[in-house]
Design a protein around this nucleic acid. Structure first.
Lengths: 225, 225
DNA sequence: AAGTGGTCTAGACCACGTC
DNA sequence: ACGTGGTCTAGACCACTTT
């Protein structure tokens, strides 16, 4: 019982066994360090790890308490689609179905803060072993990525190209479900429920790209704690 | 430029500006510590933070490199539904629509490793301002939570009761989209696309509960980086 | 005012994986 | 074998927030 991970596990065990019930305060770091015979920094590492998952709440002066309603906090990995397909042992292909420079609809213009400027619009289909895997509808801010205007995105998908050639500092992400419409209905069947990922990427105050990815029926995004 | 967060930001800036391009190695911790005039532990903290988001990859002896394909890694907060509704300024109510002790279908039996034992089956509806918000279908392993057999779950939802009264060490989580069927079709409209969360919770090798929550059309689960 | 967690230091040893 | 990151220590100062 000396590493911070072991101390984390022991604290987690005590919380699970109600040694400290939800809402109860834990001993302070100095006391725990003395009990486990380690430096305070080691206990601090363990407690910060527990706080990150939401199991305990820490406030200066007030101390550390077991969370009353530990809402689960999970880390999801949002992979590059090609990688995800290949990791499943399937062959990935992608095809540009539409590509044009045009003014986006008002909702996209507002979300990307384009101020009425034209943007590059891309519709791309990802296939896994020849079957439609995901349909990607993307807008690229040409002010943030001017080189995209001259790129066909035939070999390298827009996502991979942007990841490699554009910088970004922040991303807003949302998951939802939508009935298949338009092209998605043709690919996935009318009335299919499409798992949808929306992501808007920012470099400082400038939007880089907004993308909506609709996944094939049966797609599951998995994670764990 | 002294705190670990400032050093993290500076390193992130350099990566964004291609001082170190994807795949490039960063200087080692000792060199960075010397450059920034801080202790190595401070640089270590900053680099661990970057590694956690997937921006850099670290291996002993091989050093730290900018990830080739930085797949986005986001932390999603899976809230207690009552909290989520109330946080939106709406009134939460929930109603138990079905409750029985029975043997679950084979898929649940396998997923929860029940070995054919009966479990508590609950169907619960969550409302926000009187409108259906989510439909919850839950199985509770009575071997792990025997007290659940005598609990009506009228006042406190099963989720909150379990969080407060059961321990768990691990959870598998999956998100997907499904067409509304059965009770969900009645609540959300036939053909609605239902954002679905599946979660199985474990205490060691014993499953505690498996729950499927279908959210109302229009529900979005948001996060960011 | 006082006690808590947050962070930093300078040094050390170790585990690991690449060379 | 050896250089890297991973971790730990003992001490210190600080920021914050509650009392």
């Amino acid at each position: 019982m000396s590493g911070w991970a072991e101390i984390r596990d022991e604290l987690r065990r005590r919380i699970a066994e109600r040694v400290w019930a939800p809402g109860d305060p834990l001993p302070n770091e100095t006391a725990l360090a003395a009990e486990f015979g380690v430096a305070r920094a080691t206990v601090n590492r363990a407690l910060q790890s527990l706080a990150q998952t939401g199991l305990v709440e820490r406030r200066r002066r007030a101390g550390t308490r077991v969370a009353l309603l530990p809402s689960l906090r999970a880390t999801v990995d949002i992979p590059v689609i090609r990688r995800e397909v290949e990791a499943a042992g399937m062959t990935h292909a992608h095809e540009v179905e539409a590509r044009e420079v045009t003014r986006p609809p008002a909702s996209i213009d507002a979300e990307m803060a384009l101020g009425g400027a034209a943007a590059l619009h891309l519709v791309t289909r990802h296939d896994a072993d020849g079957a439609p895997f995901a349909l990607e509808t993307r807008w690229i801010n040409l002010a943030a990525a001017p080189a995209a205007r001259d790129h066909a995105f035939a070999d390298v998908s827009a996502n991979e190209w942007l990841v490699r050639n554009c910088r970004y500092s922040r991303a807003d992400i949302a998951f939802s479900a939508h009935p298949a419409t338009g092209r998605a209905a043709a690919l996935f069947g009318p009335g299919a429920a499409v798992f949808t990922l929306n992501r808007t990427t920012w470099d400082g105050d400038v939007s880089v790209t907004a993308v909506e990815i609709g996944f094939h029926p049966g797609y599951r995004m998995r994670t764990g704690i």
